Amino acid sequence: MAMQTAKGAGTRQSVLNASLRLFAKDGFQKTTMRAIAAESGHSLGNAYYYFGSKEELAGELYRNLRQEHRTRAWPKLAAGNNLETHIRTILNTVLDVLEPFHDFGPAFIRAGLTGTEDPQDPDRGRDLALWRQAVETARPQPPLSMRQDLPELLWLLERGVVLFWAHDPSPGHRRSRRLITNASPVVARLVVLSRLPVVRTIFDDLIGLVRATA
């Protein structure tokens, strides 16, 4: 049984590796499951056994890239940086990681929408841990009343930036970078202003909206 499990894991990985080679060479749209099966040396049926579509393969790639993003971003969250710096760092790093795969943008969005809506999704928990680290190590500290809910709101901001990037036709996707540059200080200032009751009410409404759609 262990040998069969290891063999299955090897077959799955070889199909995934073949898809990445073809995606890199021919692009996501032009690559077919039949071509992936041929490249991997397995039958089409075997490829479909492990991945129901090339969109599922793109979803697996997206999960791997999310892990790479966390690995790259975490060491950059130096204690003492202000919140604006941490927001800008995490958002720019996610685009650095995703940039070579812009052709996959819509597939990544679909993959993100199907997995990370689940509060029990491990990757969602790891993403939130990254944002929690950004909040906890920022100086000055965000208002105490915001610290528990702020990581999830910033995670939603990250998803919005990725959605914008996925459909950004500007050369080098400069508009996405400009969005990060302009949005980071605004969000950081709003967090500081959340000490004011009227601003805190807006944040409470946002949090309530998130909870209602979870």
Rank of each mutant, 00 (worst) to 15 (best):
T89L: 06
L83T: 01
V15D: 03
V199C: 07
E152V: 11
L206C: 09
R200D: 09
A37K: 00
S19I: 02
Q141W: 03
V162H: 05
E99D: 09
R126W: 12
H69V: 15
E117A: 13
R72E: 11
G45K: 01
G208R: 15
A183D: 03
S43M: 02
N182K: 01
L150M: 08
A107S: 10
L153D: 01
Y62H: 08
M3R: 07
R200I: 01
A73K: 14
R132Q: 14
L61A: 12
I36S: 02
F104W: 12
V198K: 13
T5K: 15
T93M: 05
S176I: 02
M33E: 03
M1H: 14
A107P: 12
A9H: 11
L113A: 15
D103F: 13
S170M: 08
E84N: 04
R66P: 02
T71R: 11
K7A: 15
P119V: 11
A111Y: 10
F203R: 04
P100R: 12
I90M: 15
G80D: 10
I87S: 00
R195I: 15
R110H: 10
D118W: 01
E84A: 07
L16R: 02
Q13K: 02
R200L: 08
W74K: 09
H102N: 04
N92C: 00
L57V: 13
D121V: 09
A37V: 09
L61K: 07
T93N: 03
L179C: 09
A2S: 00
A18W: 11
M33H: 09
I180T: 10
V210H: 04
A78W: 09
G45Q: 01
F51G: 14
R195T: 14
H69C: 09
V191Y: 06
L156E: 11
R174C: 07
A79E: 13
F108C: 13
L206Y: 08
R21S: 06
L95T: 00
F203Y: 07
T201I: 00
R178F: 01
G208S: 11
L206F: 13
P169H: 06
Q133A: 08
L196Y: 13
P171W: 08
L153Q: 03
P122T: 05
I109R: 12
D96K: 09
S194G: 09
L22M: 04
L163D: 06
T71Y: 14
T93I: 01
A111C: 13
T201E: 01
L57R: 08
V192L: 11
R21Q: 12
N17F: 04
G27T: 06
K25C: 04
E158C: 06
P197I: 15
D121K: 05
L179H: 06
R34Y: 12
V192N: 12
A73R: 14
S194L: 03
R88L: 03
V210L: 13
